[in-house]
Computed example of a mutant assay.
Amino acid sequence: MTHTNTSMRTRLAELLLEKSYLEGSFVLTSGQQSDYYFDCKQTALHPEGGWLIGNLCLDIIARHGGIQGVGGMTLGADPLVSAVSVLSQVRNMPLPGFIVRKTSKGHGTNQYLEGLKNFSPGDQVCMLEDVVTTGGSLITACKRVEDAGLKVAQVICVLDREQGGADALALEGYTLEALFTRASLLQEGHFA
């Protein structure tokens, strides 16, 4: 089955609207009120959804060049990291993955990152995130990755809520690339 980038984006938008997008009244992790909620895990854990997200993220990573692995903060990034890493092997551009814990392990090596044995100090990595609102948790994750000796060279999210996250990341030296914003998701998914 051959897909163009455009058809993959359209199909992913449809799946995200079907499985991950809810309208109503919600309180976000940031404490902000919102008239919609986006639960990306519902789509990322779907076989077609994970495949589409993985391929679209890999397209962005390939354009950037020089990336030696992918990772993100648990739990939202876990299915994204797995999809991108596995598909990178299929596409002959193998990228190992790592997961950033919210708290240190607390025993053994007491580390924040899982998967470090697949990397060398200074490797350039791409951080993956499902949803970016204020960017706070993503910035924390990026700092932990850099504290572990890796270089965050790229940041990709599935949905940028356009609520200051990209600007906050930019102030820390990170450029956010989003597969979708709310407006583009609704438009490309043909939400009525």
Rank of each mutant, 00 (worst) to 15 (best):
V84T: 02
D123H: 14
Q124S: 15
R63C: 03
V70K: 07
G97K: 06
S104F: 00
G72H: 10
H107F: 12
G69S: 13
F119Y: 12
E114H: 08
V90N: 05
S120R: 11
R63Y: 04
S82P: 00
L75S: 08
L75N: 15
V84F: 00
S120L: 13
K102C: 03
A83W: 00
T103Q: 15
P96G: 04
L116N: 06
L95H: 07
S88R: 01
L80T: 00
P79W: 08
F119H: 10
T109L: 15
D123G: 04
S120E: 13
G115W: 08
P94Q: 04
Q124R: 15
R63S: 14
R63A: 15
S82W: 00
L95S: 05
G72R: 02
G65Y: 04
P79N: 13
N92G: 01
M73K: 12
K105F: 01
L80A: 00
F119P: 07
Q124M: 11
V86S: 14
G69W: 04
L87E: 10
L75G: 03
D78Q: 10
I99V: 13
G106V: 03
L80W: 06
F98I: 08
K102H: 11
M93N: 10
A83Q: 01
V84W: 00
N118E: 15
G76K: 09
G72V: 01
I61M: 10
L116T: 14
L87W: 00
V81P: 06
R91H: 09
G66N: 11
A62S: 14
R101L: 04
Y112L: 14
Q68G: 14
F98Y: 01
Q68R: 15
D123S: 13
R101T: 11
G97C: 09
A83R: 01
V86K: 11
I99G: 01
I67P: 12
V86I: 14
D59F: 00
D78C: 04
P79D: 08
Q111P: 09
Q89A: 15
G108F: 07
T109N: 12
K102I: 05
P94N: 04
P79H: 05
G115Y: 07
I67F: 07
L87H: 01
M93P: 00
V70E: 04
L113I: 14
G115K: 12
Q124N: 15
S85Q: 05
H107G: 05
P121G: 06
L116Y: 09
P94D: 02
P79C: 08
K102M: 05
G122T: 03
G76E: 04
A77P: 05
F98G: 08
G66R: 13
T103F: 01
Q111F: 03
G71D: 13
P121V: 09
G71W: 05
V86R: 14
N92V: 00
A62C: 11
I67Q: 12
R63V: 03
G76H: 11
P121M: 07
P79V: 09
R63L: 13
D59E: 14
K117W: 06
L75K: 06
R63I: 03
S85G: 09
H64L: 07
N118G: 02
A62M: 04
G65H: 08
Q124D: 15
F119Q: 11
Q89P: 00
N118D: 15
S85R: 04
S120H: 12
N92C: 03
M73A: 15
